[in-house]
């Protein structure tokens, strides 16, 4: 997966756009091809030209959660970038189909990885998203295994997956697996979205999970596209 990734940045502060572009373009695969302070242009058609959208949730004082499904509707993969890191908001963004949620205080490394994973239909979970998943107390939440919960919690607290791995006494690969599987269980809840279907399809294709494994703990995690 080495082709260039075209990214759109939607943000209402020019200085932040500059910062994001310099962070993203430091990664050779990424090109920022579109910037703007509203989602109108992307929804109007420009969205088809980009592989991922980095969306600031608060645009000109209004919270743009509703823009997530609209962007996904035109085929965009959306990574939310915001200072509104209340767990409820993060989960809502993921349920609406966002690929990941990067808090504005999070590092460049998380931002770049989240954008690349979204463009490739792969799973990346930022520590902020991990905290939001593990703190879910909603009735219809997917049931996470004990080790998935532990991995998400430690990922939220530590500096790297290898640190989590040492703490849990497993390999970094296993830690990554726990975190990705937890995220995949969440791809089945909330609003059906083509991005979620693609995410699950890619996970199954990679042999990370089998379709049977995604029906867990009474919460059916099916391909959203197959729902009627």
């Amino acid at each position: 997966m080495d082709e260039t990734v075209n990214v759109a940045v939607i943000e209402d502060h020019p200085v932040v756009i500059e910062g994001i572009v310099s962070w993203l373009e430091a990664e050779p695969r990424i090109r920022v091809t579109y910037t703007g302070d509203t989602t109108d242009g992307l929804i109007g058609g420009a969205g088809r030209e980009v592989d991922a959208v980095l969306l600031d949730l608060e645009l000109h004082g209004h919270v743009a959660l509703g823009d997530i499904p609209r962007l996904i509707g035109v085929g965009c993969r959306v990574v939310v970038y915001s200072q509104h890191t209340e767990h409820r908001v993060v989960r809502q963004a993921l349920r609406l189909g966002a690929s990941d949620f990067v808090a504005k205080h999070e590092s460049k490394q998380h931002l770049v990885k989240a954008v690349l994973a979204a463009a490739d239909d792969e799973v990346y979970v930022t520590p902020t998203a991990a905290a939001a998943l593990v703190s879910d107390r909603d009735e219809g939440r997917p049931r996470l295994s004990e080790r998935e919960r532990t991995a998400l919690l430690l990922w939220f607290q530590s500096m790297s997956k290898s640190a989590v791995a040492r703490h849990m006494n497993v390999s970094p690969h296993t830690v990554d697996m726990f975190i990705r599987r937890a995220r995949l269980k969440y791809a089945g809840v909330g609003r059906a979205a083509p991005t979620k279907a693609d995410l699950l399809a890619r996970a199954i294709e990679d042999g990370m999970v089998s379709p049977g494994e995604l029906t867990t703990g009474g919460t059916e995690v099916g391909l959203p596209g197959s729902r009627t």
């Binding site: 607290q157 530590s158 500096m159 790297s160 290898s162 640190a163 040492r166 703490h167």
Partner: peptide
């Protein structure tokens, strides 16, 4: 209390 080093970063838990 456990601690781990990774490069320059220290993780205290």
């Amino acid at each position: 209390t456990v601690h781990q080093w990774e490069g320059e970063d220290l993780w205290i838990h």
